[in-house]
Simulated scan of single mutants.
Amino acid sequence: MLKELNPLLHSQLRLAVMSILLSVDEADFVYLKEQTNATAGNLSVQLDKLSEAGYIEVEKSFVGKKPRTVCRMTSTGREAMAEYVEVLKEYLSGI
C-alpha cells in the first residue's frame, strides 16, 4: 500500500517554494514571487502555512524604509521534502 503524499507539500505553490529553497541558503519574498508567478497575497498565505509547520523560517526586517521578508528552509523542512520525494518515487515505481 502506498503512503500518502504530504498534503502540505503537495500544493503546487508550496512545493515550488520548497524546491527553490532547497537550492539556495535563503530567498526573499520578491524573488519567490517572481519565480513562482504567485500573487503576493497567495504567496504570503502559503509561506505562513509552511512556517507554521516548521518547514521554513521567515524573517521580516526593513532595508531603509522598505520591508524585506527572507525565507530559509529548516532541517524539518529538508526532512519533509526528502520523505515527500521518496514517497513520490514509490508512486512512480508502481507504474
Rank of each mutant, 00 (worst) to 15 (best):
residue 2 L to V: 13
residue 3 K to F: 06
residue 4 E to R: 06
residue 5 L to G: 00
residue 6 N to G: 08
residue 7 P to I: 04
residue 7 P to E: 04
residue 7 P to G: 05
residue 9 L to S: 04
residue 9 L to K: 06
residue 10 H to Q: 11
residue 10 H to D: 15
residue 11 S to Y: 04
residue 11 S to L: 03
residue 12 Q to D: 15
residue 12 Q to L: 14
residue 14 R to N: 05
residue 16 A to N: 06
residue 16 A to Y: 07
residue 17 V to M: 01
residue 18 M to T: 04
residue 18 M to P: 06
residue 19 S to D: 10
residue 20 I to N: 02
residue 20 I to E: 08
residue 21 L to H: 02
residue 21 L to E: 03
residue 22 L to G: 02
residue 22 L to S: 12
residue 23 S to K: 14
residue 24 V to K: 08
residue 25 D to L: 10
residue 25 D to I: 04
residue 26 E to A: 11
residue 26 E to Q: 13
residue 26 E to N: 05
residue 26 E to L: 04
residue 27 A to R: 01
residue 27 A to K: 05
residue 28 D to A: 02
residue 28 D to W: 06
residue 30 V to F: 09
residue 30 V to T: 12
residue 31 Y to W: 11
residue 31 Y to K: 13
residue 32 L to R: 02
residue 32 L to H: 02
residue 34 E to Q: 11
residue 34 E to K: 12
residue 34 E to W: 09
residue 34 E to C: 08
residue 36 T to L: 03
residue 39 T to P: 05
residue 40 A to N: 11
residue 41 G to F: 05
residue 42 N to R: 15
residue 42 N to A: 15
residue 43 L to D: 03
residue 44 S to H: 12
residue 45 V to F: 13
residue 45 V to S: 11
residue 45 V to L: 14
residue 45 V to N: 12
residue 46 Q to T: 01
residue 48 D to F: 07
residue 49 K to Y: 12
residue 49 K to G: 04
residue 49 K to Q: 11
residue 49 K to I: 09
residue 50 L to S: 01
residue 51 S to M: 11
residue 53 A to E: 04
residue 53 A to D: 00
residue 53 A to H: 01
residue 55 Y to A: 01
residue 56 I to M: 07
residue 56 I to T: 02
residue 57 E to N: 13
residue 58 V to N: 03
residue 58 V to T: 14
residue 58 V to D: 01
residue 59 E to N: 06
residue 59 E to Q: 13
residue 59 E to D: 15
residue 59 E to T: 11
residue 60 K to Q: 14
residue 61 S to A: 11
residue 63 V to Y: 10
residue 63 V to S: 12
residue 63 V to Q: 13
residue 64 G to R: 10
residue 64 G to K: 03
residue 64 G to F: 08
residue 65 K to M: 15
residue 65 K to I: 10
residue 65 K to G: 12
residue 65 K to S: 14
residue 67 P to H: 08
residue 67 P to K: 10
residue 67 P to R: 12
residue 68 R to F: 10
residue 69 T to D: 03
residue 71 C to A: 15
residue 71 C to L: 10
residue 72 R to Y: 08
residue 72 R to I: 00
residue 73 M to C: 01
residue 75 S to T: 14
residue 75 S to E: 15
residue 77 G to C: 07
residue 78 R to Q: 11
residue 78 R to D: 00
residue 79 E to S: 13
residue 81 M to Y: 01
residue 83 E to A: 07
residue 83 E to Y: 02
residue 84 Y to W: 07
residue 85 V to P: 07
residue 85 V to F: 02
